[in-house]
């Protein structure tokens, strides 16, 4: 008897939560905190989000201010993490660097958009990938054949080659980094969405919409797309981690953001030259930062996926 009533209570709570907007918005957090892995990941990611949002209040230095009397120093009272080869404060560069990844997308010198460069990259990949996947899956026929063969070819190109070509050709800027992340990510998303679309397309409500005479655009974006969101959200979370990884790699190869901006990857590339001269700090901190953020994002995504599949 006890078991049954507990089960019913669970369903009851489920039903109640659907009514209240507040508890509905808290539900993802309940999900995160029910998994230890996800909680740790969430803590790491929140740390970086908080320091990047409040960056101007957390350091007296600007990320480009050069203290030419104190280059390549270790941690000290004035510079908590030390300075780089031009005497710039590493803590300031680190947290302003996190800002570019997570909070700000610098489109050009005077214009920036909210949402980090990595997030915009994933968003663009989602936009392109799910559009292609929807069209390919819903229309079928020769359109499907052509799109999928082209994507097959895209997927078989080594990713690093794509990066080299794209950004070496387009030049180093945040917009080009976003384009690179989007182009590399889109084929995978398109395949995922196509698979989901093929399944959803056979449902009765799609038949109903077709009988109503809805346009295929309406069916694709209003009827099918919202029903693919579950798997896509999980996939997108893993992709954010990968986008941060990609940004770092591009920066390290000299294809990231142009020099004065505090790009983690390029900080490592520059700092690497001074390691064997006895100044490891400039290479160490951004490496630690990028490694911890990527690991944090993956822990969060892995934990969430585990929790979700457990309930299913």
């Amino acid at each position: 008897m006890g078991d049954v009533s507990q089960l019913n209570e669970y369903e009851y709570i489920e039903g109640k939560e659907r009514k209240s907007l507040l508890s509905k918005s808290l539900r993802p957090f309940a999900l995160i905190f029910s998994s230890r892995t996800a909680t740790v990941g969430f803590a790491i990611v929140s740390f970086w989000i908080i320091v990047s949002v409040f960056a101007p209040f957390l350091t007296p230095y600007s990320p480009t201010y050069q203290d030419w009397k104190a280059p390549n120093q270790g941690p000290s009272w004035n510079h908590p993490l030390g300075t780089d080869e031009l005497g710039r404060d590493l803590w300031a560069r680190l947290i302003y660097g996190a800002r570019i990844v997570l909070v700000i997308f610098p489109v050009s010198s005077g214009l920036w958009l909210p949402g980090g460069t990595a997030l915009w990259g994933v968003a663009m990949a989602l936009l392109v990938g799910s559009t292609l996947g929807l069209i390919s899956g819903y229309k079928g026929g020769w359109i499907d054949e052509i799109v999928m063969r082209l994507l097959d070819a895209m997927i078989s190109i080594p990713v690093i080659l794509l990066y080299l070509l794209l950004v070496a050709a387009l030049g180093a800027s945040a917009v080009n980094v976003v384009i690179a992340i989007a182009i590399v990510g889109a084929p995978g998303i398109a395949r995922l969405v196509r698979g989901l679309t093929l399944d959803i397309k056979t449902r009765d409500y799609i038949r109903a919409a077709e009988t109503r005479g809805e346009s295929s655009l309406y069916i694709m974006f209003v009827e099918i797309l919202p029903n693919t969101k579950g798997p896509i959200i999980i996939d997108a979370m893993l992709r954010v981690g990968y986008a941060v990884f990609a940004m770092g790699t591009l920066g390290f190869l000299g294809l990231g953001l142009p020099p004065p901006s505090p790009d983690w990857g390029s900080m490592v590339a520059k700092g690497r030259e001074f390691i064997l001269a006895g100044a490891p700090w400039a290479a160490l901190w951004p490496s630690v930062a990028i490694a911890s953020l990527v690991v944090g994002l993956n822990l969060l995504a892995d934990g969430l996926r585990e929790e979700l599949t457990r309930y299913q």
Binding site: G248, V268, I275, A283, S287, I290, V294
Partner: peptide, 25 residues
């Protein structure tokens, strides 16, 4: 699993820097 995941997602250049610092410096 956690260590394996961390190793596989840490960017190669960061891993390289860590190893250089530990073993070379």
């Amino acid at each position: 699993s956690i260590v394996g995941m961390a190793f596989s997602v840490i960017p190669e250049f960061a891993m390289g820097i860590f190893l250089i610092l530990i073993f070379a410096l």
